[in-house]
Amino acid sequence: MMIAVVALARVRNLFAVIVLFGLYSFLTATVMVALDAVDVAMTEAAVGAGISTVLLLAALRLCHSEEEKPVHKPWLPLAVTIGTGLVLVYGTWDLPPFSDPEAPIHTHVAPRYLEDGPRETGVPNVVTAVLASYRGFDTLGETTVVFTAAIGVIALLGRRRHVRRGKQ
């Protein structure tokens, strides 16, 4: 994944960037499978490596295939990115170790979903109950983002200028 990120930062050909982005998304999906989050992996593979790649390729048809060289060095965005990354890493220091059976999610949240989920939601499948009921607004938000991106690409493709014959 780090090789893909470094390549993404160095490549100027936008087609190669889209392919590397799809590769990175696919690698993220394989990490999710290794973490036993198959539902998240399938979503990442479908949306990240699939739909997003197709939408980006469609948008690429509207622009040049080479990214323009920046006028100045991007030191401020780099500093903001590094600062944000450090804050995020700092925020993980208080988290319990991975797969700790005594973590709050395993002692409080999961048992509540397993015991009360079918009664509260009326859905016998716990995963469906969590995604559709407890996290319903989150799922709606994700769907809205993908729908909005698709509409944006369709709008961009619809704005293509048709050159009349004989006129430049």
Rank of each mutant, 00 (worst) to 15 (best):
Val5Asp: 03
Ala7Trp: 05
Ala9Tyr: 02
Arg10His: 03
Phe15Gly: 04
Val17Leu: 01
Leu20Ile: 00
Gly22Cys: 08
Tyr24Ile: 08
Thr28Gln: 01
Met32Ala: 13
Leu35Arg: 11
Asp36Pro: 02
Asp36Thr: 03
Val38Ile: 01
Val40Arg: 08
Ala45Ile: 05
Val47Glu: 10
Val47Thr: 00
Ala49Leu: 02
Thr53Gln: 12
Leu55Tyr: 04
Leu55Gly: 06
Leu56Trp: 00
Leu56Cys: 07
Arg61Cys: 09
His64Tyr: 02
Ser65His: 11
Glu68Trp: 04
Lys69Asp: 08
Pro70Leu: 02
Lys73Cys: 12
Pro74Met: 05
Trp75His: 05
Trp75Val: 10
Leu76Cys: 02
Pro77Gly: 09
Ala79Glu: 12
Ala79Leu: 14
Gly83Ile: 00
Gly85Trp: 11
Gly85Gln: 07
Gly85Phe: 03
Gly91Trp: 00
Gly91Leu: 14
Trp93Leu: 15
Asp94Tyr: 01
Pro96Lys: 08
Pro101Trp: 01
Glu102Leu: 11
Ile105Met: 08
Thr107Ile: 09
Val109Ala: 12
Pro118Asn: 03
Thr121Ser: 15
Val126Ala: 09
Ala129Pro: 10
Val130Met: 14
Leu131Met: 12
Ala132Pro: 01
Ala132His: 13
Ser133Glu: 15
Arg135Asp: 04
Asp138Leu: 08
Thr139Val: 00
Thr139Leu: 15
Thr139Pro: 04
Leu140Ala: 13
Gly141Glu: 12
Glu142Ser: 06
Glu142Trp: 12
Thr144Lys: 00
Val146Trp: 03
Ala149Asp: 06
Ala150His: 03
Ala150Trp: 04
Ala150Glu: 01
Ala150Lys: 01
Gly152Ser: 11
Val153Leu: 05
Ile154Lys: 03
Ile154Gly: 13
Arg159Pro: 01
Arg161Lys: 13
Val163Trp: 02
Arg165Thr: 01
Lys167Phe: 13
Gln168Phe: 10
Gln168Ile: 05
